[in-house]
Amino acid sequence: MTIVVGYVPNRHGEAALDAGLAEARLRGGDVVVVNATRGDALVDRRHLGDAAAAELEARLAGLDVPTSVRRVLGADVAEEVVRVADEVGAALVVIGLRHRSAVGKVLMGSVAQRVLLEARCPVLAVKAG
C-alpha cells in the first residue's frame, strides 16, 4: 500500500508529510513524497531545491517507514501529483491546506482543490497546526 504526500517545503507541507507518515505506520505502507513545480519562475518557494531534497531524504531515511522522494516538473502541479498517485497506485493522497482569503480564492487556481477533485483515490487534506 502506497501513500502519496504532496509536499512543499513549508509548514503546510510538513503537516501533510507528518500525517502521511502516521497513516503509513497505521496501515503499514510506504510513502512517496512528491514535490511538483511548474518551473516557470526564476524562484519558486514551493520548489524543493537540490540541497533541501537531499536534506529531506536524509531525514526520511532514518524513519521506520519506507519512503522515496520524487521531484517532478510539469505544466500543472495538481495534475502532476495526481499522475504520480495513479502511477504508483496510491491508496491515499495527503495534501496540506492553507487559509485563503475571499479574493485569493477568486484569483488563484487552487492546487489542493484540483487534487481533491481529480484524484482517483481518497484524499486526506491536512491543516498546519
Binding site: G39, D44, G49
Partner: peptide, 9 residues
C-alpha cells in the same frame, strides 16, 4: 529557450 527549472534562492 525558456528555462523550466527554478533555481534555489
Amino acid at each position: 529557450h525558456l528555462r523550466r527549472q527554478p533555481l534555489d534562492v
